[in-house]
């Protein structure tokens, strides 16, 4: 590197965009890495500034059931053990399996599931949970988000120093939202494919293949020659 730039950098006279997340988010505890929670998948972490942000908003556009929660749950479990705050799931599309949560190592008495009747109540509860400061992460399944909703949620997340993860289905997500990090997930035989469509202080990256075989071997497909064609048996 140019020695002049080096010199200026040492004197903190040059500001680099890549340092942005680091300065805006002082670490909560010394135990955590400086700017994020590692997801446990090194191939994703290296594109994500060492993982998910400490607090803020992550937009995930994903179909249900392709491994989208497996991608983030290890990091969230780590957050829970370190921070001891609540983990809130708002308006999940199906019944959340307790056995699977235990398998991830979550403490069930620190998980709160909110099932509001109206979508507008879901947004309200998300804002309250984020603001309260007693939730480390709030997951929200919501398909009709508008820009002003997202701005409010982002402010609330900053105020309560919690991480808000939005899960939206691909069909409903035409609108680009003002979020610091946006991910688009695609199914993959070996795990999951991640496109980072938006990232504050970085370039978007496409087609990151996350391998999950080492953790969930039963949820990966073997290579082609081993596949046994499955035929549906007729009833009776």
């Amino acid at each position: 590197m140019n020695s002049v730039i080096e010199h200026l950098k040492n004197k903190h006279l040059v500001w680099q965009a890549s340092a942005q997340t680091m300065t805006s988010a002082p670490p909560l505890t010394g135990l955590l890495s400086e700017n994020g929670n590692t997801t446990g998948f090194p191939e994703l972490d290296q594109h994500l500034h060492e993982g998910l942000p400490q607090h803020g908003l992550v937009d995930m556009i994903t179909p249900i059931g392709i491994g989208e929660l497996r991608l983030i749950f290890p990091a969230l479990q780590e957050r829970q053990t370190q921070q001891g705050r609540l983990f809130v799931l708002i308006a999940p599309p199906m019944h959340i399996g307790s056995e699977a949560l235990l398998e991830f190592g979550f403490c069930l008495s620190q998980i709160l599931i909110i099932q509001p009747k109206e979508p507008i109540d879901a947004l309200w509860s998300a804002e309250q949970c984020l603001k309260s400061g007693c939730c480390h992460t709030v997951l929200l399944w919501h398909d009709n988000l508008e820009i002003h909703h997202v701005k409010r949620l982002l402010l609330a997340a900053e105020q309560g120093r919690s991480l808000h993860i939005l899960l939206r289905s691909p069909s409903a997500s035409r609108l680009s939202l003002p979020v610091p990090i946006a991910l688009q997930l695609h199914p993959d035989e070996q795990g999951i494919q991640v496109d980072i469509t938006k990232r504050k202080g970085g370039y978007p990256t496409k087609g990151i293949q996350v391998h999950m075989r080492h953790r969930w071997s039963y949820l990966t497909q073997k290579t082609q020659h081993n596949v046994v064609p499955f035929t549906r048996r007729q009833a009776g």
């Binding site: 609540l86 069930l108 998980i111 709160l112 909110i114 509860s125 309250q128 949970c129 007693c134």
Partner: peptide, 22 residues
Amino acid sequence: PLQLIGLLQAKLGEQALVSPCI
């Protein structure tokens, strides 16, 4: 956490808030 639950329950009704158990 308990204050938060009280707040949410007041608006959403008591049955809207649950925790998973086994």
